[in-house]
Design a protein around this nucleic acid. Sequence first.
DNA 1: TAGATTGTTAATCGATTAACAATC
DNA 2: TAGATTGTTAATCGATTAACAATC
Lengths: 221, 221
Amino acid sequence: MKSEKISEAVVRRLPVYLRYLNDLHKREVSTVSSQELGLKLDLNPAQIRKDLAYFGDFGRKGIGYDVSYLIEKIRHILNLDQQINAVLVGTGNLGQALSNYNFYLRENIKIIAVFDANPKKTGKQISTLIVQPMEEISETIKKHNIRIGIITVPDVEAQNVADQLIEAGIEAILNFAPVILKAPANIRIHAADFTTDLLSLAYYLDNGKDDSADDGELEDK
Amino acid sequence: MKSEKISEAVVRRLPVYLRYLNDLHKREVSTVSSQELGLKLDLNPAQIRKDLAYFGDFGRKGIGYDVSYLIEKIRHILNLDQQINAVLVGTGNLGQALSNYNFYLRENIKIIAVFDANPKKTGKQISTLIVQPMEEISETIKKHNIRIGIITVPDVEAQNVADQLIEAGIEAILNFAPVILKAPANIRIHAADFTTDLLSLAYYLDNGKDDSADDGELEDK
DNA sequence: TAGATTGTTAATCGATTAACAATC
DNA sequence: TAGATTGTTAATCGATTAACAATC
């Protein structure tokens, strides 16, 4: 174990490991090697060993990693060995889908309140929750020790909502709106905007493009 | 302009540029510098200039970039100057949300068919589309020149659906299921699984952790 | 002209991978 | 013991950033 700073790339792989380890556990596999993990997750085995070694000596030479033990360790590293409360703001289609999709079933992150600025939406029930008006957001966050905010409002409202969440003391934000949010450095923001993923995917479509024909306009065919 | 290979990191930033440029265009801003872009998008201006320069000399020294011209160029690079047809498989909450969320309104990617394996779901209407049974997927993809597949089925079914999409001739997949899909190298797959984003976010929550207390178990407080 | 800003080279920084001693 | 596999160092690879000549 070392005391280096952990890079974002490493942290982003931890949930991927955890997910597959949970899978192995369900299938009653008790031990796994970095080799096998790498094969399944399309990652270099050395990278996996290095990632894990940042946090401790979790493996055994000649044997591999104990699945249950590694699950426990990664869950601890990710703060998932405690319940993490979250709020969701914006009950459009996506917001409703996420509210129903209960993260809590798999890991310890639980959406415990949902909000919407639209009075026509407030008071309605989504899953087990009642949609609350924005006026109540600060009080709810403080009262229930809510640490993560999930933003699923239209892009023009996203920054405003983020500001309110931060003001109320939230620590981290998962942002589905297609904008870059501004926030103090101590607030962690992850972009979950899939339009970026989708549009960049289009780049890789093969249009019979020829690298050497940069200036040639091949409109037809 | 150079003929180097374009890295994935560069491609992923292009939609981000495009998004903000569209914004500027709407606000009738006609010119923008890499400096301003960097400020708004939290990116290094040199990086933005370098990214764009891979594809051409789009800027003017001393002036900056013409917003409309750059939009046009990036849209061309991303293949968005033509309609790209997509299918969506899996009409659960998320699938429905994405079907309603019409990408087509902003850019040229259009979901033109939706599928579900569940007979109780087929025949129902989502937005303007009728949910079709999986049996029709291959024919529909071929008939309508569908190039992108969006997977929103449960994780255990995702690989199977991916195989069917690939078999039918799809070129790229946006995968929302929390699994690593296996596919031939010529098929582009982007992971859009937000549980990974959410769980990695939890890592950054401050639990009064102390880097130097690696082995000390501070359970309380 | 003077000020601004690009495109690009060189320098830096960081992340991935290979290799291997240690050891189960 | 022999085979397997870790943890870690060193080598490689790639991406970001700084700096600046070119030029609008």
